[in-house]
Design a protein around this nucleic acid. Structure first.
Lengths: 129, 129
DNA sequence: TCATGTTGCTTGCAAAAAGCAAGTCATAAA
DNA sequence: TTTATGACTTGCTTTTTGCAAGCAACATGA
């Protein structure tokens, strides 16, 4: 069932996993502290529930996201980024900076401003921690 | 027919433009020196010609790419990155570094190695190890 | 002049993915 | 017993993707 890779280019391979409109938004929300399925559904972009389920499966298969049951009866799950997932934070930050710089009518919500260190315009892995 | 934006998040807006499997690959090739339609078609990933035409149109509409006729009789066109398009290079670099660091069986072709600031790639790659 | 080739696309169509609404299942609380 | 919540799944329509062809404007060679 595994697809063969389009090329050995690391960028093409990254896009095979992340090249859609939702995956990086899910990763954004996990990076900003969301952890349950319900919280991820609350994102302002309104991801359809079947797509959220699909993306979480794919991201788990890629070991970018992990799922753990944090309680039993009733069982409740929490999602979080793996180390590989955390490795995407510099990507999120560069895309964010590009959007802010070049796409009109974009801004960071105040709630997010507190979590990101935009002063360090240089990429810094701990910016989104 | 301009779509309304999903949210004001700069990341979401960036993904509305770039969130697919081909756009950033086209931008990669332009950044690496490709300039004609035919050259862009030669990318190892094998982009279908109708999708290349579509992506070039969309990227021009977003002012990420510009098209100029560099000769008449016969008319020949060259594509290049605008300043907005060049602003995506840090994004390409971070995605590339992530792919190199975390996706198995990826590598940079020798032809590309000469064109990229290898120091920054290597330095950050070791940070991720 | 005619056949052939090259560049830069467009068109048609089947298959895959996205998007929307509704349904399901295991509890838990009222 | 009814209602509610979390975490999804299913069904169906619309949109996008991915081939394969086709086409127009020249250029070149016989």
């Amino acid at each position: 069932m595994k697809k063969i890779q389009r090329s050995q280019c690391p960028l093409a391979n990254a896009l095979d996993v992340l090249g859609d409109k939702w995956s990086l938004l899910v990763i954004r929300d996990l990076a900003l502290g969301a952890s349950t399925y319900g919280e991820l559904l609350q994102a302002p972009e309104g991801i359809p529930t079947n797509l959220l389920a699909d993306r979480l499966k794919r991201l788990q298969a890629q070991e970018i996201v992990e799922k753990t049951a944090y309680q039993q009866r009733p069982v409740r799950y929490s999602y979080s980024l793996t180390e590989k997932g955390n490795g995407l934070k510099p990507v999120l930050l560069e895309l964010l900076k590009w959007g802010l710089a070049y796409v009109p009518d974009t801004r960071l919500p105040d709630a997010v401003l507190g979590k990101i260190n935009l002063k360090s315009v240089v990429r810094n892995q701990s910016d989104l921690d």
